[in-house]
């Protein structure tokens, strides 16, 4: 089962729509609520990041009986030092974004915490792809 969502980078308030839709789909598939919550939290963080840093992008989700795989790709500025970005509390968010309650530097660490596998590939000036996997046991 493959699904594609477009994330609009201009509308900050719409961020989270794709996660909401995927959540509904996962419920229809009968995936346990604990797993859905993990996926929801990780994907929501990633989706917000796409809007804040990269002006939106595309989300591809693939669901098979053994795992949920979500790939989020943008053509934003890219992450120069992924290792640094993965550190808790490290943030490059603007004051405006922080005022909205985001940008605490927990986005990427949270994605890692709530998934079984997480891969970030990025090229400065080209964009970033975040791949999240949660296994269904």
């Amino acid at each position: 089962m493959k699904l594609r969502f477009e994330v609009d980078g201009d509308e900050f308030v719409l961020a989270g729509e794709a996660s909401s839709k995927l959540k509904k789909v996962l419920m229809q598939l009968g995936i346990s609520s604990q797993l859905i919550r993990k996926i929801a939290i990780a994907m929501y963080e990633a989706e917000i990041n796409m809007v804040i840093h990269a002006n939106g992008g595309f989300i591809d989700a693939e669901i098979t009986p053994d795992k949920v795989f979500v790939s989020l790709s943008d053509t934003g500025p890219g992450i120069p030092d992924i290792e640094l970005a993965m550190k808790e509390g490290y943030s490059t968010a603007s004051d405006k974004v922080r005022e909205l309650g985001f940008g605490a530097g927990m986005g990427l660490p949270n994605m890692k915490r709530y998934t079984d596998d997480m891969k970030v590939t990025s090229e400065v000036g080209k964009g970033t792809t975040v791949e999240l996997t949660v296994f269904i046991s």
């Binding site: 089962m1 509904k24 789909v25 229809q28 598939l29 995936i31 009986p65």
Partner: peptide, 23 residues
Amino acid sequence: ISKPVLTLDQDMIKAIQKLEELE
């Protein structure tokens, strides 16, 4: 307890097929 009334099929493989059809 949760009431999984939204689930399309108890069997996940069938549920996936039904969801693809639904889309």
